[in-house]
Design a binder for these strands. Structure first.
Lengths: 199, 199
DNA sequence: GTCTATAAAAGGATAGAC
DNA sequence: GTCTATCCTTTTATAGAC
């Protein structure tokens, strides 16, 4: 009954809808009907639609451990394998949605062409959080990579591979492009590791 | 005066607008005003907005040589360098637009969440054309790569690197992520080539 | 904080004369 | 093929009682 509950329902509904239909294609009416909230309540908590998006992006940012990394890394200890476990989670999402999955952050990042600076900031924070997590994994397996390895760039590469793979798999309605992308990334890491071993 | 001219003006205006603002955020009125065409004429040539998008995507697909590959490869003969020249063209676009550039195909692929099969087909054709061109480059430098190299996957990797790099550079308003992505791709190709040399 | 009703504008698309 | 006028729906947002 508290207002907090209502606000949370709005954000949760918007999270789902923005992911399913995108930001522009989701109407306030859609959010109201899914969250079972009336117009007056929504505008009591949020000045406008953009502010709902802001809250959604903050939700993703603050929930990355619980919503994404935790589930992905459950039972996986090896830091490099954690990177691939994260990618495997996306693969599962692709398969579960019959190849309609889109990364909610990436989709919004490309959908909004003249996003408010504050929105862009939140998108950037989401990407940064993701890359930070992957970088930490790679860096904690430091011994395996050759000295001078650019862990930041390597972690960003994982993001690029994921985003590109998701984009292609959705367009072709086929997991194969995603799988090929991950396989290439694996081959790249292996090359960096083998190289070291060969010295 | 011929209708052909009008149709072309509409498609050209829509191409620009979809790229600048996205599909959903571009209104028919926007297209009419930029192309200096009246409502009646547009609906004479196209049943609806989606059909304009279809024509735009066919324009990109059919114009890849003239609009993209030709300019990118002007004066570049080495097939592997052509891949990087293509990526360098995107870099130029990023810089010229002060990091607001988005790949027109990738943006639409992520913006439309339940695209008509025919639209998805056109998006797929665009990606396929791009990857085909890069694959042909890599394959024609076959001697340099180790036997058993998956040229298709390697070419798709170039696309993923480009799309991911563009996404990050736009979000962070900074070319650096794009540059890092390309540098990693270069390092990967080098690793595949050096490896061969080492055998 | 929540409810209903509604304003105010923008959107896609059509009609019918020329 | 092109023109103007306009219909109809959707959309964001507000008003004001409770």
């Amino acid at each position: 009954m508290g207002g907090k509950d209502t606000r949370a329902r709005i954000v949760e509904a918007a999270m789902e809808l923005f992911w399913e239909k995108g930001f522009s294609s989701t109407s306030i009416a859609d959010i109201l009907s899914r969250s079972q909230v009336n117009s007056g309540s929504l505008y009591h908590f949020f000045p406008g639609k953009q502010d709902v998006l802001l809250a959604v992006l903050e939700g993703y940012r603050d929930g990355i451990d619980e919503m994404l990394l935790g589930p992905a890394w459950n039972g996986i200890d090896d830091p490099v394998e954690r990177v691939f476990a994260l990618l495997a989670l996306y693969r599962r999402l692709i398969v579960e949605t019959e190849c309609q999955y889109g990364c909610p952050i990436g989709s919004i990042a490309l959908e909004l062409h003249d996003a408010d600076p504050i929105i862009r900031q939140r998108l950037a924070e989401n990407f940064t959080g993701w890359v930070d997590a992957v970088e930490a994994c790679l860096r904690s397996a430091e011994g395996r990579f050759r000295p001078g390895t650019d862990y930041r760039a390597l972690a960003e590469m994982a993001l690029n591979v994921m985003e590109g793979g998701v984009m292609l798999s959705r367009t072709f309605r086929d997991v194969a492009p995603f799988d090929r992308a991950v396989a290439q990334y694996r081959a790249y890491l292996d090359a960096l590791i083998e190289k070291e071993a060969a010295l």
